[in-house]
Design a protein around this nucleic acid. Structure first.
Length: 109
DNA sequence: GTTGTGACATTAT
DNA sequence: CATAATGCCACAA
């Protein structure tokens, strides 16, 4: 049922850890709905505000923010992500591998 | 029932 | 990098 799908998506989004981002397609896949990225967008659009979903952790393919650069949503998402330590440059979330590499080179010892 | 529109993704030009 | 074509599918008109 469709409400089932929406709930599965909401649960999945709710499970995204702080400081981590997942693509629309990724959420769909994790929710057991492969190939239905658009439904994820719809699910987030109609999600009850009461759920307090971390919608800002969901990005487009290539870890790009899907909202138009000038939009309020775009600014909002960038702000929220940066508030969690996620680097966002030019509407693009910096690759985690680069961050991990930095951690590796600095942490040891 | 048909058509247009998306908080999208992937592949091919 | 930019565009277009497809696939996907819920919803509104």
């Amino acid at each position: 049922m469709k409400t089932e799908s929406l709930e599965a998506i909401w649960r999945t989004v709710r499970s995204i850890p702080r400081g981590q981002v997942v693509t629309y397609g990724g959420v769909a896949r994790l929710a057991g709905l492969p190939g239905r990225a658009r439904l994820v967008g719809y699910a987030l659009r109609v999600a009850p505000a009461a759920l307090r979903l971390p919608w800002h952790r969901v990005v487009g393919s290539g870890e790009r923010i899907v909202f138009p650069k000038q939009s309020r949503e775009h600014a909002e998402q960038s702000r929220r992500l940066r508030a969690e330590g996620v680097k966002v440059i030019n509407g693009r979330v910096q690759r985690r591998s680069a961050v991990d590499l930095d951690e590796m080179l600095w942490k040891p010892r």
